[in-house]
Amino acid sequence: MLPLLCGCQQHNILDAKGPVGAAEANILIIATIIMLAIIVPTMIATVVFALWYREANPRARYRPDWAFSGRIELVVWSVPLLTITFLGAIAWIGAHRLDPATPLDSDKKPLEVQVVSLDWKWLFLYPEAGVASVNELVVPAATPVRFRLTSSSVWNSFFVPKLGSMIYTMRGMVTTLNLMADQEGELRGLSTHFSGDGFSDMHFPVRAVSDAAFADWVKGAQGSGATLDRASYAELAKPGTLDAPRSFGSIEPGLFDGIVAQTVPPGPGPGGSGVEGVRPKGGS
């Protein structure tokens, strides 16, 4: 099992690359250990009782009328209750500390990224830099990132397994998510809520880079010239997949808010019955 826990896996949630994911993996492991302490003895006792008290064992004492013991009942109700009290405290504290909307501790000012799930692509807008990218998320390492997310048509869920916490994207609504990458590295993100025929291809590279490399990337995007306005957004929102990530050098002001308020028309969505739907390519 141990070699499987090595850092070579792109999606392993137990091998987190950020504080949120690490804290969540930690809770996951602690809670698992606590519960194993109860269920493993129960499993063993089940097998042992069934075998020891089997009909063919003459040494087992048959007590055909023994059907109640107040002491045992006390234990039987207390053990799960105490376990749940303990785990409930973990859950309550964790639900607050690790709430996706809670800002992360850091000296650095968070970078804001707006996310729009399209059919079947991810659009990332960087309002401060005025650039946007499709199917590629680039963030500076060791800087908190504050995501605000919505959808152009159907539900999706944004998830970078190694950074932690997923969150839904829903049309007409904004969800908030705070994540941070500890160090530079190549990660992957994906959609975890089924959104139609092209759903399986809704994964994207996530590049956590140095501040300098991030500034370079922003400059490069700004130089690319293309503008993300309503027209190019409408084109992008049509169902289908992209062969390679794209970027935009400038964004029409208020585009994200327009998408949320649905003053920018929603994407046509994964309509089309059966064969008419856009077929995603097999693998990529």
């Binding site: 969540e24 809770i27 996951l28 859950a91 639900a95 500390r97 690790l98 397994p161 997923m166 809520h193």
Partner: peptide, 11 residues
Amino acid sequence: AIPPADFVLHN
């Protein structure tokens, strides 16, 4: 049922 665990395991 522990929300932080569900945040990485949901779906």
